[in-house]
Write a protein that binds this DNA or RNA. Structure first.
Lengths: 168, 168
DNA sequence: TTTAAATAATTCAGGAATGAAATAATTCGG
DNA sequence: CCGAATTATTTCATTCCTGAATTATTTAAA
């Protein structure tokens, strides 16, 4: 049974949160549930249509926006994942001929990773469909509500970063 | 380098999204980035303070709210993860004496999983701190904004579920 | 300049997560 | 009642991801 089938007929954790849960907790559960729902849908679509995965797609997206390529460390920071993870994903994409490691002439410790021409073609095709999916999934919210939601999320994200320094 | 250190000094994917990205896509990237940020913080705190993980905590939370225990399948649906995954997490928690598999007398295919007394104690302690963390992380948003954000997320979640049926 | 510290990338062990296949038990149509 | 389909759980191969250790290179300090 896949996530879609489960999600279709069962309330998730957030939906069942008891009434006396505090506001912050309810907000977090709802945020998490909503994101998980969209994320698993995107993963499934990427798999079905392109036999690829979200991390592969994400790495290619980073490279697509950086035509000169990025170092492994830069990729790690941008994707917010560990360096070891980037090594693995890059290995896989390189095996498939979608990206290429190029030694940096300035610094022999670093590899610059670039999309190959096949990688660029492949990413363009995926990105077009991907955006259609997202519009289909999130576009139902009106423009006004979308903007408001994005704004509130922006404020929340800033809060989260702030809360790192002090108390926690 | 961990996610916290990376996040602290580098804009993430959402922050860098180019201005001409469409609304829906921006919304999704921001939703994803915000959730990832909070999630990795919670994972880190669970690890640091209780040497446990989010999936273990989640499974125990489900059981805490269901004093009669839940079947593996019920856990799988509520946690929105695959059955194989639930088997693994349950195995680990059972090894640690926090949960217990009880054969169902009505149906010999099913196991009911319950928290042991030690599991209940352990979960109570974790839940108290967990809620403090979440309030510290998300509570900075005022009550009004929190409610508004939760409401918008609720609408988005409904949209997402709806978009499953039709085109996409 | 030589050594020490810092940085870039990789490797590795271990926990998650998936989907598919296998096993076992139940239910249902005839 | 019997066999087929369904349901519950586990197992397995694969991918992802982390944090720690390792190797190689660069930078900085003495």
């Amino acid at each position: 049974m896949n996530a879609k089938a489960r999600a279709a007929r069962q309330p998730d954790a957030e939906t069942r949160a008891s009434a006396d849960d505090h506001d912050a907790l309810r907000l977090w559960l709802r945020l998490f549930a909503t994101t998980s729902l969209i994320e698993s849908r995107v993963r499934r679509l990427l798999q079905e249509r392109f036999q690829t995965t979200l991390p592969r797609f994400d790495l290619m997206a980073q490279l697509y926006r950086a035509p000169d390529g990025l170092s492994m460390g830069e990729l790690s920071r941008r994707m917010m994942v560990s360096g070891g993870n980037v090594t693995g994903i890059t290995d896989a994409l390189e095996r498939d001929g979608l990206v290429q490691r190029v030694p940096d002439p300035e610094d022999r410790r670093v590899f610059r990773v670039r999309l190959t021409p096949a990688g660029r073609r492949s990413f363009r095709a995926m990105a077009t469909e991907h955006e259609r999916w997202i519009v289909g999934i999130c576009g139902g919210l009106g423009a006004a509500e979308s903007r408001q939601l994005a704004a509130l999320l922006g404020r929340l994200k800033a809060q989260v970063r702030d809360s790192e320094e002090d108390g926690r």
